[in-house]
Design a protein around this nucleic acid. Structure first.
Lengths: 213, 213
DNA sequence: TCACGGGCTATACGCACGTATAATACGTTA
DNA sequence: TAACGTATTATACGTGCGTATAGCCCGTGA
């Protein structure tokens, strides 16, 4: 393996375990190279970060293409990745990206939302999932909740290796229960919200009628 | 207002807006004091951090005691706080605490879980919420998802001021929908999980029977 | 009146970081 | 063989950080 690739992989590992605050010297030592070589190959810390992003995103896209339509249960793509030991460094890296918020975080969320939407719609067609009033919004919401919980759990666990397993332990039952039976006993809150939204959107439409700015 | 209090409030504001990586010099300038005074009053950066934690947690507890049982809709305590302009700095600070994962993050989650559990059980008693197989696990799960989504949204928005409002916009409808009707059309997944769990816990019990370590 | 202590400041120390530069080792090509 | 570019290293620079120290200002009590 070329030294540049080794540096990149080490960086993904260390960024994932300790966050992007980790120093280049630590990465250099862990990779068994000098500090200068990192700079030689990647130009700057941000350059190294970009290379890590590209590499990780490439892996994600690759797997996304492979497993399209292969999912059966309620597992998201990141779940499937985390279940495979070899991909855990990437999952950890992605969680750090999300936690930092910058860089390709929105891109990552958009991609996972898209694949989730696809998966949900297929499930709706098969009669497995209930239809939604606003399918894209539902997909995004579910992704946001799921990833958020994973990020949080990961942060709480002090980035321990078994953070993902512990997440599964605490989330499996309540998640299935919520997905199966919901939480509310009647529709009044949802109906109320829908009526209110309809009202305000009509107001908005009326305003636009008068002054279409 | 005493200078120490001004430093503390400024620190909560800046830590909340820019994260705990912010320098003491920036805090000192914003508070209109010298760098040394922070050290004089709080000993170290960690001391200042502790003072901020205590102050924010105190506010939370205070409000928690005030509003016990006052909640009506599906809003968590942090929602109620975020809705009041004056408390947004505290909400931002709490989100940063959760994001960092260290310090009182678990304590914060435990407290919110406890109040959520209380709220859920009251709702179950009133026939508003469906009962759960494992109420504490459900409460913790809901808190983890909700807070996680908030943290994520906050991180994505680059800590913009309207992050919370944008969160409400995207989460209100899908959230109500999920809470009202669930996601799955039948109970097979949940039943399957329960059967499997029962089986493995019987195995565990049997193992403990033989070798109660 | 004078010593004293706490609020407060100015300045400096040491460290870790990302960055920059110069030099070395080495395989490839003319 | 000689020239050259690439991989790689060692060392130094500048900066911002948290921390440390010495001293000033001033109200208070003996």
């Amino acid at each position: 393996m070329t030294a540049a690739a080794r540096i990149r992989d080490t960086a993904i590992e260390l960024f994932g375990r300790e966050g992007f605050g980790v120093g280049l010297r630590a990465i250099a030592e862990e990779a068994g190279v000098s500090l200068g070589l990192i700079r030689h190959h990647f130009g700057s810390k941000e350059g190294l970060r970009r290379a890590c992003d590209d590499h990780a995103m490439g892996h994600l896209q690759e797997l996304q293409a492979e497993q399209v339509g292969a999912g059966e249960k309620t597992a998201t793509l990141l779940d499937q990745l985390a279940a495979i030991e070899d991909y855990r460094p990437f999952v950890r890296y992605f969680l750090q990206v999300l936690r930092s918020g910058d860089g390709p975080a929105s891109l990552l969320i958009d991609r996972l939302t898209a694949s989730t939407l696809e998966y949900l719609e297929a499930g709706v067609a098969k009669g497995m999932f209930k239809p939604s009033i606003d399918p894209p919004a539902r997909a995004r919401f579910l992704v946001l909740m799921k990833l958020g919980a994973m990020v949080l759990q990961h942060a709480l666990a002090g980035d321990a290796d078994d953070a993902y397993d512990r997440y599964i332990d605490v989330a499996a039952l309540p998640g299935l229960e919520l997905y199966t039976q919901g939480l509310l006993t009647d529709d009044t809150l949802l109906d109320g919200y829908l009526r209110q939204r309809e009202g305000s959107s009509e107001e908005t439409a009326a305003r636009h009628e008068r002054d279409p700015s």
